[in-house]
Design a protein around this nucleic acid. Structure first.
Length: 852
RNA sequence: GGGCGCGUAGCUCAGUGGGAGAGCGCUCGCUUCACACGCGAGAGGUCGCAGGUUCGAAACCCGCCGCGCCCACCA
């Protein structure tokens, strides 16, 4: 035991020891019923971890440590989510390169020493992927260092990455299974599209952003009717793509138009006026134009009304050239349609919108001035321009047909906190299409299929050639399907590889299978850890990660992937805004750990209740640090020169203490069982401070008593209570607890058994006097407080003697006070004690006259 | 517009049918043999507003106000 115990250096000392001892190593031979498995969120490796990570991973670690101490074999792997767009973007910026799949591989390629953001270097896809791997590797090392310093009790031998061979194999294997069962399909259809990244995106990856726009009132002249149609639109650039005008079926105002036709302004295309119940009568004029495609509602109307396609928007976000006058592009004035459209073709959406408004004004078809409006626009969450809808060939996983089943699964899952389930149900109920999983990107898991090319050179997408299971993982852009040779790539009669990669969630949705190594080594590990016990994650990705994992598990395993979902909140900055890099308010976690110590930072994190957003608060870390220091000092005091313990607790106050401690243990245990680590910490901490302030002070006299008979009971109580506190705090303050445990115990506190309330109750005894003894502890502490108050108000030191103390109180409390009288007199330096009955506690404290 | 959550001391929050609490901050005091990264004490709140249930409401029910998040809303 050190002379002056300190927190400095404990992280390095004990994280090295834990690694060496294999303290957190998962025992692969453990039977399923003893295993507690955690589907750890793999953090995105695209920069740095932030305080929010430290926050939520600490919650999981506290639970993991509790379970381990309960005797369960904890499966707690770490994963790194390194595939996907964030890594691509980071590599582009970090090295100043851009992936160009048409560039050949350069084995001796080295990235430029001085990356240029303005003129990125075009490199091949294999070279690009190499750079992605190189960058993620160093990021992952930094992440691991941080987690070790924070004290996460992860088994580092089980680490996986989402771009690694194992994850790719499992992801591709799952995909091929879905394909074989018809649960995955390919379709050329209107798809959500990001024009900057030029890739399909999924509904789950969208977010709303407020953007200014302009409402244009536009006249569509009647074609087979005298009446004109007035339409309000914020997207006049899509008029050429208009395929119909709609009214609500019960809207009397437009009855004359319905069933007739109108001509689009500028282009003179004849389009029908039809009805649909989803049209909102009170918006604009009550008439709406359907374009292919302006938004998802357009897709709905287009599909349900069987409308034709007139696409004007290219994948790069510019307007396409279109053949006016040919089939589908009819006009009553082809020349002017061509002339007008030539002003738009090749322009970006914004340019075309502005020019369209000018053309409409010139032609007299714009009524009044465009009115500025603010409206919410859908963006790809990582994109800079609004998503568009572009028709393209994509892979989908069937989702809509499973909606009801997924709702049921959500109800089987135990949510912590319970109200988070509503977010899941809302999301599932709001789904409006199957999950698009293909992305036109480079750094991801490829689709393990090729397509035959017929003799005319046409790619037969509807006849995919799946890779054989034993070849997985494969990259169809470099590998060749069985029965072909490399020279046939792209040739008539040959084959073509699928060019796309999977959405990052298509792989992340399989983390239970990846971590558990499903289908590997005969599925031995998987059978021991799946279904997992808990999925810890934040509430913002319920619609993505949690939802897709439930879906994939349903499709592949017909099971819930886990029994519990422990949902954590966010870290907010002191202004209650979500902490984010862009706001410049992110605090570097490593700096925090160095400044306050890991236990202190963990204390702050563990104080945040499940699911609740928590403000970043350095003050709370200081409080945590004080608690850790207190545990050091209290342990030192209790254990230094401690006389031998007796066989039993013979003093009433000692028994009463242990009885109270049993209640705290019971409450902490119950809280942990409900994943309410914050409550477990709070109750433990609250009682610990009371223990230091009252119990340790009360028993000082007996603890130092030269008579070993007297010291034996308190010695026993101190050992027992200290051991319990050290174990109760171990999930939260793993470093300081391990330190104080090592002073007097064998082995790691983190492999010690969680204290049991029943054992403590047995130790305290359930004698008839227990109630009186409990009252004695309470009354003694209350009187001690009153004595301290009197000394404090008299501005006298605490050791100042009390020449005479009169205690007035209820008879039962006065009676109980006798049991702790010896300790009270000593702790309060009380020379004489008198009692008097009263309705409530009051004391008279006589102090000797002040000297000087 | 729909759903969920929140509103308690200056701050961060606990408290879910019967005493309005903790920590921090603030003020005052104390080198007390574990700890000055300490110890003791004090001041500070009509528990968002209004109604109802109840012997009794911070808590339960209804309404309203405010804040946050999720979803829908691109005509």
């Amino acid at each position: 035991m050190p002379e002056r115990p300190a927190l400095e250096g404990l992280e390095a000392k004990w994280s090295a020891a834990w690694e060496q001892e294999g303290t957190y190593r998962f025992d692969r031979a453990a039977p399923r019923e003893r295993v507690y498995s955690i589907d750890t969120p793999p953090p995105t490796v695209s920069g740095s971890l932030h305080v929010g990570h430290v926050f939520s991973y600490t919650h999981t670690d506290a639970v993991a440590r509790y379970r381990r101490m309960r005797g369960q074999e904890v499966f707690y792997p770490m994963g790194w989510d390194d595939n996907g767009l964030p890594t691509e973007r980071r590599v582009q910026n970090h090295f100043g390169v851009r992936c160009d799949p048409s560039v050949p591989y350069d084995p001796s390629f080295q990235p430029p020493a001085e990356p240029s953001e303005k003129e990125p270097l075009s490199i091949s896809r294999p070279n690009f992927v190499e750079l992605c791997l190189r960058l993620t590797e160093s990021d992952e090392q930094a992440f691991e260092d941080l987690w070790r310093t924070l004290g996460l009790s992860v088994d580092w031998s089980m680490t996986y990455t989402t771009i690694g061979k194992l994850a790719q194999r499992i992801s591709q294997r799952s995909f091929l299974g879905l394909l074989a069962r018809g649960a995955a399909y390919q379709l050329e259809a209107p798809t959500l599209w990001d024009v900057d990244f030029q890739t399909a995106v999924a509904q789950a990856e969208l977010e709303d952003r407020e953007r200014p726009g302009a409402m244009h009132r536009v006249r569509f002249a009647g074609a087979d009717t005298e009446a004109d149609a007035l339409i309000e639109t914020t997207r006049p650039e899509l008029i050429a793509a208009c395929v119909a005008v709609l009214a609500h079926p019960e809207d009397e105002r437009h009855r004359a138009l319905v069933g007739r036709h109108v001509r689009t302004p500028l282009f003179g295309t004849r389009v029908p006026v039809m009805t649909h119940a989803a049209v909102e009568r009170d918006k604009g004029t009550g008439l709406v134009m359907v374009c292919t495609f302006g938004d998802v509602t357009d897709v709905l109307w287009w599909r349900e009304l069987g409308l034709p396609v007139r696409s004007v928007l290219g994948p790069d976000g510019r307007l396409l050239e279109v053949p006016w006058g040919s089939e589908g592009w009819e006009s009553d004035d082809v020349e002017s349609a061509r002339r007008n459209y030539s002003e738009l073709a090749g322009r970006t959406i914004n340019q075309a919108r502005k020019r369209s408004a000018e053309l409409l004004a010139e032609s007299g078809e714009l009524i009044g001035e465009p009115q500025p409006v603010n409206r919410a626009v859908k963006f790809f969450e990582k994109g800079d321009r609004p998503v568009e809808i572009v028709t393209s060939r994509q892979w989908f996983i069937r989702t809509i047909e499973h909606q009801e089943r997924l709702i049921e699964r959500g109800r089987e899952l135990d949510w912590h906190p319970a109200y988070m389930r509503a977010r899941f149900e809302d999301w599932v109920n709001g789904l409006n299409g199957d999950w698009c999983i293909s992305r036109q990107r480079f750094f991801g898991v490829p689709f393990p299929v090729w397509y035959p090319i017929d003799e005319q050179g046409k790619v037969l997408y509807e006849q995919p050639i799946p890779a054989s299971a034993e070849r997985l993982p494969i990259d169809p852009s470099t590998e060749v399907p069985d029965g072909y040779d490399a020279s046939q790539r792209g040739q008539p009669g040959g084959f073509a590889g699928d060019p796309d990669v999977m959405d990052t969630w298509a792989t992340s949705s399989l983390t239970p299978q990846i971590a558990g190594q499903a289908g590997e080594d005969g599925g031995e590990l998987f059978a021991r850890v799946f279904p997992m016990d808990v999925r810890p994650q934040a509430h913002d990705i319920i619609r993505t990660w949690l939802f897709t994992t439930v879906l994939r598990s349903e499709l592949d395993e017909s099971a819930l992937p886990w029994q519990n979902a422990a949902i954590s909140g966010w870290v907010l900055d002191p202004d209650r805004k979500k902490m984010s890099k862009s706001k410049g308010n992110v605090v570097t976690p490593m700096h925090l750990l160095e400044q306050h110590g890991a236990d202190a930072v963990r204390y702050w994190a563990a104080s945040g209740r499940p699911g609740t957003d928590t403000a970043f608060d350095a003050q709370q870390m200081k409080v945590g640090r004080r608690l850790a220091v207190k545990l050091l000092n209290a342990s030192k005091f209790a254990l230094s020169d401690l006389p031998p313990a007796g066989d039993a607790l013979t003093h009433p106050l000692d028994r009463a203490l242990i009885a109270r401690l049993a209640k705290v243990v019971a409450e902490a245990t119950a809280s942990f069982e409900e994943y309410d680590y914050a409550r477990a910490l709070q109750r433990t901490e609250e009682f610990f401070w009371w223990y230091c302030d009252y119990y340790l002070e009360l028993v000082k006299g007996r603890r130092y008593d030269p008579d070993p008979e007297i010291a034996a009971s308190v010695s026993r109580a101190l050992r027992l209570s200290l051991s319990v506190f050290q174990r109760l705090f171990a999930p939260f303050l793993p470093f300081v607890c391990e330190e104080v445990w090592s002073w007097w115990q064998e082995g790691s506190v983190h492999r010690a058994s969680w204290p049991e309330a029943e054992e403590l109750d047995a130790e305290a005894g359930s004698s008839e006097g227990a109630e009186r003894e409990a009252l004695a502890l309470e009354a003694t502490a209350d009187v001690l407080r009153e004595v301290r108050k009197a000394k404090s108000q008299a501005k006298r030191p605490m050791r100042a003697p009390v020449t005479r103390l009169v205690v007035r109180d209820l008879p039962a409390r006065l009676d109980a006070l006798e049991l702790g009288e010896d300790d009270l007199l000593q702790a309060g330096s009380i020379e004489s004690l008198e009692r008097a009955e009263a309705d409530e506690l009051a004391v008279e404290v006589e102090l000797p006259p002040e000297e000087g």
